[in-house]
Nucleic acid binder design. Structure first.
Lengths: 203, 203
DNA sequence: GATTTGACAATAGGTTGCCATTTGTAAACC
DNA sequence: GGTTTACAAATGGCAACCTATTGTCAAATC
C-alpha cells in the first residue's frame, strides 16, 4: 500500500519476513527480537529496520504474507476448476485446511478474527477485521464467474457460511481436511443444483 | 449432576447465580467477589458458600445457567414448528442470536469455544469443549424427528455447519439476527428440498 | 434449624522499585 | 549500499511487599 520502495523491490524483505514467521511458529512471538532475526537471516540489525521499519510493521508484513498464501491457495483451486464451482469449493476448502494445519501463526490469526486475544492479537486490530471481508470479496468475485443461478444476495449467504465454517474448522477442526471438504462440497452441490424442484413450498 | 441437595431445592441458589451473571456482565468477572455478591443478593457471605460451594463452582453454575437458556430457546423454536424444519431452523437461529446480542457472558463463552482466552476461559476448560458437542447432539435428536430425506451423515454435516456459523455470528455478527436467520433458513430449504432434481451430475 | 456473624489461615492478586533487554535512531565506517 | 558502533527511551521481567479475597470454622442470633 505504501508505494514500491526500492527496498521492497530488492529481494531482501521477503527472507526476513519468512524467517520471522518461522521463528514465531517455533519459539513464539515474544522470542522474536530484531537482533536474533538479523542473525538468523545473516544481515545486520539495521538492515532489518531499513526493510521492515518497526516491529509492528514486521507483524503486519508477516500477516500479509500468510494471508497471501491462503488467497493463493483459494485462487489455485478456482483456477483448476473453472468449469465446476462445487469442485472448486471442495479443493479450496481442503487446501486451506491443509495449509492451516500445524501453522501456529495462522491459528493465532484465525482465533483473533473470532475475537480472541493471543500475544499476537494486539497487532491485528486493523488486519483482523478486514481479513474476513477481503476473503469474502475475493470469493464473491470468483463465484460470479460461474453460472450458479443464484442471486448476488444468495451467493453472499453461501459465501458467508462457507467462510465462517472453514474459519471455525481452522481454529477447532473436526475430522480431516478432506472430510470437511467433502461435507461442504456436498452442501454446495445441493444449494447450487439447478432449481428443477417441486414448484413452490412457501409463498 | 450431584443429587438434589435440599439447598438446591430451595430457591436460594438461582438468585445468587443470576446476580453473579449480571455482575459479571456489568463489571467483569474480576469484580465479582463473594462479599459483593452476598450484599447484592441480600444474604450473608456464608450462605453464598453454602449454596454454590466455591468460586469455580459459581462459574460452572453461571455457565450451565446460560447454556440452559440457549438450549431452551432452540427447543422452543423446534416445538413451535414441529412440522417444518426450515421454519424451526429460522426461529432457532434468530432466537439464539437475539439472546446472544448484548450478552457479554455468552460472548465470552462463545469466544472460548473457538479457542480464545478471556479471564473467564480458564474455568471453561471442561465445559467449553463439550458445549458444541452437547448442542450438536440435541440438534441431531431434534432433526431426526423430521422427514428430511437426508442420511444421518448428511444431517450431521448440515448441523455442524449451522452450529459453527451461528456461533461465528454470536462472536462476530454481520447484519441483524433476523437477516442471518433468513439466510440460513433459505440455505436449509435448498438443502432439504425433496431431491427432485436433474438426475446425476457426478458419479 | 437455618442463617448470620466474627474470626482466622492460606492464598491470590496487585503494587512498587529495580535491572536487563530491546527498540528505534543516528552517526561513523567500509 | 550496507555494516558497525553508540546511545536514549521504552519495554518487560523479577522480587519483595502488601492488600484483598478465598475458604472454613465455631459461636451467636433470629
Amino acid at each position: 500500500m505504501g508505494g514500491t520502495s526500492p527496498a521492497a523491490a530488492s529481494g531482501r524483505r521477503q527472507p526476513i519476513v519468512e524467517a520471522a514467521i518461522e521463528m514465531t511458529a517455533r519459539d513464539g512471538w515474544a522470542a522474536v527480537t530484531m537482533t536474533r532475526l538479523a542473525e538468523q537471516v545473516g544481515v545486520s540489525r539495521q538492515t532489518v529496520y531499513n526493510e521492515v521499519g518497526s516491529k509492528n510493521a514486521l507483524a503486519d508484513a508477516m500477516l500479509a504474507h500468510e494471508l497471501h498464501r491462503f488467497l493463493a491457495a483459494i485462487s489455485g483451486a478456482f483456477d483448476r476448476h473453472a468449469g465446476d464451482l462445487v469442485e472448486a469449493i471442495h479443493d479450496a476448502v481442503r487446501d486451506v485446511l491443509d495449509l492451516a494445519r500445524g501453522n501456529l501463526l495462522v491459528r493465532a490469526i484465525a482465533s483473533a478474527t473470532h475475537g480472541a486475544d493471543t500475544e499476537l492479537v494486539p497487532l491485528l486490530t486493523t488486519q483482523a477485521e478486514t481479513l474476513l471481508i477481503e476473503v469474502k470479496a475475493m470469493l464473491a468475485a470468483r463465484v460470479e464467474t460461474y453460472r450458479t443461478g443464484l442471486t448476488a444476495e444468495q451467493a453472499e449467504v453461501l459465501i458467508d457460511l462457507m467462510t465462517r465454517t472453514v474459519l471455525s474448522h481452522v481454529v477447532q477442526p473436526t475430522g480431516t481436511p478432506a472430510a470437511t471438504a467433502d461435507g461442504l462440497a456436498w452442501l454446495a452441490s445441493r444449494v447450487l443444483e439447478e432449481p428443477v424442484r417441486k414448484p413452490l413450498r412457501f409463498g
